[in-house]
Design a binder for these strands. Sequence first.
RNA 1: GCGCCCGUAGCUCAGCUGGAUAGAGCGUCUGACUACGAAUCAGAAGGUCGCAGGUUCGAAUCCUGUCGGGCGUACCA
Length: 639
Amino acid sequence: MITLKKYLKEKIYQLLKHDYPVNHSLLEMAYTPDLKMGDLALTFPFHLAKELKKKPREIAQEIVPRLSNIQGVDRAEVAGPGYINLFLNKSQFLNSRLDSLKNTSLSCEEDKIIVEHTNINPNKAAHIGHLRNAVLGDTLVRCLKFKGEKVEIQNYIDDTGVQVVDVIFGFMEIKNKNLSDIKKITGKFDYYCWDLYSSVSSYLKEHPESTERKAEILKKLEKGESPEIDIAHYISRNILRAHLKTMERIDVTYDVLPCESTIIKLKFWEKAFELLKKKNVIVYITDGVNKGCWVMKLEDAPEKEKIIVRSDGTVTYVGKDIAYQLWKFGLLKKDFYYEPFTQTNGKPIWITTEATKNNVPRFGNGSLVYNVIDTRQSYLQNIVVQGLKSLKYDAQAEKSIHFSYEMVALSLKSLKELKIQISDEDKGKNFLEVSGRKGLGIKADDLLDRLEQKAFTEVKKRNSELTKDQKIDIAHKIACGALRYFILKFTRNSLIIFDFEEALSFEGETGPYLQYTLVRIQSIFRKLKEKKISFDISPNEISFKALSQSELNDFWEIIFYASQFEEEVLHSIRSLEFSNLAKFTFILCQKFNAYYHKYSILSEKNQDLRNIRIFTIHYIQEILKRALFLMGIPQPERM
RNA sequence: GCGCCCGUAGCUCAGCUGGAUAGAGCGUCUGACUACGAAUCAGAAGGUCGCAGGUUCGAAUCCUGUCGGGCGUACCA
């Protein structure tokens, strides 16, 4: 479709350029509201009307005869007040579409793209908000790879931040546990820390004198003193493993885990600090409220200052993030060392270390960077980009993309279901933001468990002959598909107010609906094979004459729609709006299911008719498989 | 105060680089299984696209204003 549109645009341009003031963007083609009107619509007569001092319809009528000889176009028609609608040649179109299944017409534009996503603080279990981040990031990665780009997936681990300190404090002061006690904890460690973490803030409220002890832990961590540093390491690594396991459940993986602890040890910040000072991007303040700090002046508000280095000499998060962003582009002139941390599907996930190792891969040096972070961090992300710009890295600043999205909140109904007490300050709100600190949220594993459990019941109902393991496997795939589609169907700027009933639904616009559609198609092919019915699905063998006019319309509608898949992927990448892809796939499945009910295949005696129908569902199957893969929705054989 | 985002059917949301009659799912009501799998399909009811101006041949879509809601604007991350 992409190359076809491009080809048509060029042809039309060549035909008209001498006589009409047209250019390529004017010749952009739209889809008609109804295929009876034509396949593609040109709207440029409207735009030329004023300049040519003619009515749009007159212009369209003049031009239409000239377009009749374009190869691939059967005819052109004037429609409505001045549209020019093109009718494509169907068999030529089918041939070009089958070609694009074999080798995609998409191509790579970047040397290497880095996508940073997930980034969960390693101090508690992952929750529904983190799932949104991971699913969006992972879908972006899959789409970029499909486009032909080389992609590196980074998951930044803030293993020395104040959140980890809270949990260490909880263990040492509230629970009175040392490292060996902590190691004895059984059960899900991330869940244990979830409860502990949320109890720390209320404890500190009741024991304000303990705040000093917390500050002491932070200092000891920065100096690398035992036992605090060992506890921090144990907690963060253990929880990180739990997070990776959770993400593996929804088919999300990573290449490398850059750790803040390594960034500190390898003195990345010091290097960035030098650069920033040398180029006067940050200045030392000697007077006023920010006395003793290094600050960056804000571009759009010069009266404001963002503190980069605090008066006590410690660096803020933004400062570290600037250093990290510089490293991603290969601009820091410093590098990490790595060791394998774990693996998913046989593929290693590397973690940063401060010591040399042999035979390790190299990461970083991207030419384009996506940071998948929720919209609340827009302000800080802008400062990081501004930092790059001020360092005269304009090209890299341009290529630092904040993939922002809205948060996940909990409806009052969900809170009730979770038996979470609403605090006084939150009363009167319609929904509550997910918060690890407050312990407000649905743990990712809990949600996945519930989805799997429900899916298992449904599978059992329909497939009693399967073994238990098979049922578990299918239930797992359905749960993953349901979750990923549920997250993807929202646009990224839309606040998801989480509701169990909607999230747990397997009917209507859901992941399982898409999966079920594929299962149906596969089942037809399985039966064709069982019944030894042969078929030929090359478009040259297709005889349109076998089709009635109304079936030809139905056939063409579904094929033409499916063929817009690649365009849809590119559009989704450009707009970072994967709800486009989700919606496209859903509509494709709707069209298929309607087609499926209307036309039978196995019982069709007319061989030409059967062939063309098999061709149709084969093409849909190919597109659907690709679409599901890009969204990370698993493809069960049966369900 | 300033900045970003949201406001479309009873509910949850698509549609927004202007284009032909505003869509879907859920819910409600009518129908369709001795099956190419009913996790499905066919149909009905349901909308002054928050409000008011403006630009345009044409506005849910762009601009301005306004009302309502969310988030950000930390020597937290």
